[in-house]
Simulated scan of single mutants.
Amino acid sequence: MGSGPARGEWLRSRTRRTGPRALAAGRVDGRSRTAGERGRMKPLPGCLPCILHQTLQVARSVSDDEWSQRKVLNEVLRALPDAEWHQSSPAELLADAIASARGTLKVRAPYADLRAQVGEVFAGLAEDLRARAGQEADPFAFLVTAAAAANLVDELVFARFARKDPTQVFEQALAQGFAVGSVDVLRETVERAQTVVYFLDNAGEAQIDALLVEHLRGLGKTVFVAVRGGGLLHDATPEDALAAGLAPPSTADPAPASPGDAERGSPNDGAPVFSEPGAEQTPESASDDPAPRALPWLIELPFGELGVSAVARSTDLGAALERADLVLAKGSANYETLRADRECFFLLRAKCGPVAASLAVPQGSLVLHHVKAPEARASEPASV
């Protein structure tokens, strides 16, 4: 017998214990989460080959040794049949597969070299887009569409564009615009909002997201930026966010306003005081002070978590979401896992069949998916 984990061990264990994996799987001490606590999307059969493909890419990024690659895949293949698919999102299953690969390969951060290369591509693109946004009649619509069009790093990393210029692919998506969703509806929602939580997705495209975050701040919005804690594929970490040019609100440059945008004061007017990222925090419930405690503007999610789990909500993210009027979430993993208890817009490229089918759009489409706040949904008349 090999030295790898027993059949299904790394996935079954996440339903037997408390902690990040147990919570992400939907069970704490054997109790299932309620429907409202679960992710938004459940795995389909088509998710299985994608999980295996991405796991293989992780192995290939670390080692050219075919024996090591087969070992990684065999461990995942032994585990997946025993996974409780009805309690996990595709992103959560993939996160566990990547964790298994990291353990086998003894590497903490796969794709380290490739991340730098992708970052260089998007840095040049962001510089060009910044100049173009200043000349656009509607820079808000331009930057929102650009943020979604930039959600192609997965395909770039997995060499699907090996014979295509990624900048050309981006420009084509930008010109085509959204297959579903309304920028005007988002604009109206932004006008009503004061506090925004913005979820980054991939490291390279964070360069483009930074332009939209700056624009929101220029409209007087308080923006919390959520990033991954590392250990995944090419997802944006705090280091990636800072490298992309995201800065504390006090030093951020205001973005050009769209025609008709009202002056709304400085980015920090009426906003909660920001603390330094990583500063020790006191739980809000433990304080007698009615004023909200300071939160870091850059919020780091737990290491190895793909998407938004219950564990992530137990961090500063949960407090930020409680204060938010609006959530903007990039990418498929956030779409698959984020439970919308606030007004939420998902910006993504529907890169895979299951995600595209769930959104009723052709694969590869740009999507601006709007999920209304629960109270707004409750007030709508029932359909006949």
Rank of each mutant, 00 (worst) to 15 (best):
S266H: 06
A271D: 05
A255K: 02
P283A: 10
A247C: 10
P283S: 09
D261G: 05
P248L: 11
A286M: 13
S275G: 15
A241P: 07
A262Q: 11
D235W: 04
D240P: 02
S258T: 15
A252T: 14
S250R: 15
N268E: 14
S275K: 02
P283W: 08
E276Y: 06
D240Y: 02
G231F: 10
P290R: 09
R264H: 12
R293I: 14
D288P: 15
D235K: 01
E263K: 02
S258I: 13
G231R: 09
P259I: 13
P283H: 10
P267A: 02
G231D: 04
P267R: 09
D288T: 00
D235G: 04
L232K: 05
D269C: 09
T237G: 10
E263A: 04
P249Q: 07
A286T: 03
A241I: 08
P259C: 13
G231I: 05
E280I: 02
A243E: 04
A257C: 08
A255P: 04
D261H: 12
E280V: 06
G231S: 07
A262I: 00
G230S: 08
P283R: 11
S275P: 03
T251V: 14
S285W: 11
D235P: 05
A255Y: 09
S287C: 12
G229L: 04
G278F: 10
T251I: 11
D235F: 08
H234P: 00
S275Y: 04
L246F: 02
A236T: 05
A252E: 09
E280F: 00
P249T: 11
L233T: 15
A252K: 02
G230N: 09
G229K: 06
A255F: 09
L232I: 15
G278N: 12
S285V: 09
D269K: 09
D288S: 14
G231Y: 08
P254K: 09
G229D: 01
T237C: 09
A252S: 15
P277N: 12
E276K: 13
A279K: 07
P267G: 06
L233K: 03
A252Y: 00
A255S: 14
T282A: 07
P290W: 09
A244L: 04
P238L: 07
R293S: 13
A291H: 06
L246S: 03
P254C: 11
A241C: 06
D235C: 08
R264K: 10
A262D: 13
A244T: 02
F274G: 01
A291T: 12
A236Y: 01
S258P: 02
D261K: 12
E276N: 03
R264M: 13
S258R: 12
S258D: 15
P248A: 11
S285D: 08
A244E: 07
Q281R: 15
P248Y: 08
A257Y: 00
D288V: 00
P283M: 07
P254L: 14
A286F: 14
A257F: 01
G230W: 05
V273E: 13
E239M: 03
E239N: 07
V273W: 02
G270F: 05
A291I: 02
P292V: 00
E276H: 05
S275T: 15
A241V: 07
P248M: 08
P292S: 11
L232S: 05
H234W: 06
P256Q: 05
E239C: 01
D261Q: 13
L233G: 02
T282P: 00
